[in-house]
Design a protein around this nucleic acid. Sequence first.
DNA 1: CAAACATATGAATAGTTGTTCAGATATTAT
DNA 2: ATAATATCTGAACAACTATTCATATGTTTG
Lengths: 121, 121
Amino acid sequence: MTREREIVDRCEVSCIHEDKVKEVRQRMLEEEAAQSLAQLFKALGDTTRVKLLFALMQQELCVCDLAAVIGLSESAVSHQLRLLRHQKLVRFRREGKVLYYSLADKHVERLFGQGFEHVTE
Amino acid sequence: MTREREIVDRCEVSCIHEDKVKEVRQRMLEEEAAQSLAQLFKALGDTTRVKLLFALMQQELCVCDLAAVIGLSESAVSHQLRLLRHQKLVRFRREGKVLYYSLADKHVERLFGQGFEHVTE
DNA sequence: CAAACATATGAATAGTTGTTCAGATATTAT
DNA sequence: ATAATATCTGAACAACTATTCATATGTTTG
């Protein structure tokens, strides 16, 4: 047995199902899409932000109220709201000095709904 | 004006809408529930895991295939699969030495669906 | 305009997370 | 039993993230 043959043999010793891998790879989602999706879920994947969104599911609230509801500094809340804003999960309207935040659309509620179902089953 | 009244007054100097805060707090979700939900979304909030789940949406695959599909070491994939397993997002069956992973249930697909809608709109 | 207030932001820091590497299990074949 | 293979696991390290603190911005009121 030559040295080359040995190497080839070693490479073939693998559990990969080439056909499956090829097929799945072709229908795989783009790197960018995967990242966007991950970022969306990442935005939902934090206890503080879950609480913020849950509170906003009930009614629109200002930063100050949100801070009081979840028991965190207004600064911390503001930072997190920015993140949620960038993911278009919340929006806000200004009334004088006060900014009232609310959920951006129905997607968030549905995502939460699905999440709840999964967690509480 | 008594001393007590003074203190109350001072506390009122704030943007907090006490009534709203009280109401929302009462209907607030438990700390534990918030954490579970956050953990679920956190599990979905990573590019590698998004790819893994997307691949598994197409068909069941072994660790080795998954590693080949997304171009990462088997060890890294295994670590991530464990996380997904703990969140009950994937399950597996053994066939000899090989473990075939697949999505745990329909929740994941629906969550992904909702996520996609949000990201690609 | 200046003071007061609600919110936002930047920097710093502590805590968390993903990958790699080395080694451990578990299953099958010899 | 031993060797080979597929997967798992623990430790370590780099990269990322959430909160805090100090300060800035923007809006109203006097």
